[in-house]
Design a protein around this nucleic acid. Structure first.
Lengths: 351, 351
DNA sequence: TTGTACGCGTTATCAG
DNA sequence: CTGATAACGCGTACAA
């Protein structure tokens, strides 16, 4: 099998020492114009490319970061990862991508292989359980930035959106349109993202004095199928909800599917509001009203923040703090037409 | 800064030689039960993990593959990549992901950094121009598998779907429904995928004796915006098309958007048929009829095929040949109701 | 300005 | 069974 040319071969070809060749190719130290030319020519002649592995062993730097998220397949993560990659590419970093599928086992596994591969930094969206290994890594073993969710007891910069605010706004929108039986399909309970969105839901209801009914709360797992099942359960109730707040993109898919199957019209028979704003949100019938997160930006920032840690720019305290981005409500048609202010639901008590 | 424990430290702690420690931890060669225990204990005690970089330098193997596609953000690629990752993860391989955005410049750039990083194999979807570097790499420098598209003059196993057949089936479907002014929004001309789909379009028309009009052909760039513009142009024609065949997912988005803006109803005023079957295809109004590609499977196979090359299982000639998967037409409602056989368009000439 | 020599952490060979 | 010891390819302190 073919073997790549080495610095040594360049040096021989150029008739200089190995160290000399290294200096001009690495562009450091002193060297004369003439040797520079000799080395460069030799390098080109034999098609030399540096061996990054050897360099890494020496410098202890790989210019690689590991990214561990739940599932590249969902819109939120795809765009977030694209953000990371774009920024990383420009900075000369490669990114190794892993999907945990929300399984702590996978998280643990990937985290350790990533660490063994000497990545310079890690961008992680932690699963629900067993963060012991993550915490261990965070104790100075490798720079880490969290995205989307924090972990209790882990002091690591986190880039995320204000989920509670997003959910609050969504549910308020529903209330303003006259809804008072608002169901919610949450994500996995315990995951910060879910809990915050649920909190926003609850806060909105409480503020307007709308009764909070346990039967209207369904726990999903962030995935389509379970949301579909949950929606069906909701529809089997004696008094069905007048609106459903679905806490992420794959789950809205499931919900809409269930609604379609049951022949219900949106929003006439039941309103739907989602979280995450994928391209297809404008194409549904009717177009989906939803909370939009700046996922691409989160990716960009996440990379900036690991890079800051890697480069040790800790002087800038900014890079040690969390950043919490504001989501925005994108109003389309799946909740019906917005009523005038004076037409808000009578149940509203706090002005 | 913290430094990871090394084999040497394990050896010292265990009171054995470096070579010994290496043998038991690497599980090769001979060692006694007692030294095994000593080494294992020491390893655990100081939390040893092997340094993959050093190993790679020695073995010349990185257990890493590079994946270079156009854009992780589109459905086809996301699922394909997920296929690769799933298979790679199980095989103990990491994957470095890069987006070319269909720019040869980026391709060249990423290809070289991937190569310098000593990836064991490469899965690439080549851009249109300038494959000189790719060809160079393919000359025994690193195992390569192509996905989605071939490159002229490059003898490398390629995993793709039969685009012509897919397009042919799509257009035939349209014709069977009585359409005779069928527009097409193609991908980038010259890219094999596009050309094949175009060929399928043309073949279907010719077979049924439907006139082939240049004005009904718009070249897109695989992206949403340009397809949107193209659709608008189509609608500005004196005689607008009765149906549009749009050659990939992001472009269907653009097309539908344009149609919506113009107030046209699908399929009453104009039919739409797409290529690629993203989740949202069932949610559009009406649900989108489209050609579905087995993208996840392509990813799986692609990894199998590079791995075969890496492991040198070339004895199995199977792994040297292209595999061309059959797409399937998913009929929903964006082309209208299927007519009975005897109702096919009168222009049909060849039974 | 140039060359020498050592170290990075493993794997693997070769005597004992 | 075990212990030295030589690569792997590159960076860099040190000497010349």
């Amino acid at each position: 099998m073919w073997r790549r040319p080495t610095l040594k071969q360049v040096a021989e070809k150029a008739g200089v020492s190995l160290g000399m060749a290294g200096r001009v190719l690495g562009n450091y130290g002193y060297y004369s114009k003439s040797t520079k030319k000799k080395v460069l020519d030799a390098s080109k002649a034999i098609n030399y490319t540096p061996n990054v592995i050897a360099r890494s062993l020496r410098t202890r730097l790989t210019r690689t970061i590991g990214v561990l998220i739940s599932d590249i397949t969902t819109f939120f993560w795809t765009t977030l990862v694209r953000g990371i990659q774009d920024k990383a590419g420009k900075a000369g970093f490669s990114v190794i991508l892993c999907n945990s599928d929300e399984e702590s086992e996978n998280e643990r596994l990937y985290l350790s292989t990533l660490f063994e591969r000497n990545v310079d930094g890690l961008i992680v969206s932690p699963t629900l359980h067993n963060h012991s290994y993550l915490k261990k890594l965070a104790r100075g073993m490798v720079p880490i930035v969290l995205v989307d969710r924090r972990v209790k007891g882990l002091r690591v910069p986190t880039i995320k959106t204000d989920n509670q605010a997003g959910a609050y706004e969504a549910v308020n929108h529903l209330i303003a349109l006259g809804h008072d039986r608002i169901a919610i399909i949450t994500g996995i309970a315990g995951v910060e993202t879910s809990d915050e969105r649920f909190a926003g839901y609850r806060k909105a209801l409480e503020e307007k004095g709308i009764p909070f009914r346990k039967t209207l709360i369904k726990e999903g797992n962030f995935q389509k199928d379970q949301a579909l099942a949950a929606t069906k359960e909701l529809l089997r109730m004696k008094r069905t909800p007048s609106a459903i707040f679905v806490c992420n993109e794959p789950m809205v898919s499931g919900c809409i599917l269930a609604l379609k199957e049951s022949g219900l019209r949106i929003p006439e028979d039941i309103a739907v509001i989602g979280f995450d704003d994928p391209v297809w949100a404008s194409y549904t019938n009717p177009p989906l009203t939803t909370v939009s997160q700046p996922s691409y930006t989160i990716g960009i920032l996440a990379f900036d923040y690991v890079l800051a840690q890697i480069s040790n720019i800790k002087k800038d305290r900014k890079y040690l703090e969390d950043v919490i981005l504001k989501p925005t409500l994108v109003i389309r048609e799946s909740c019906g037409i917005r009523l005038k202010d004076h037409e808000v639901h009578p149940a509203q008590k706090n002005p």
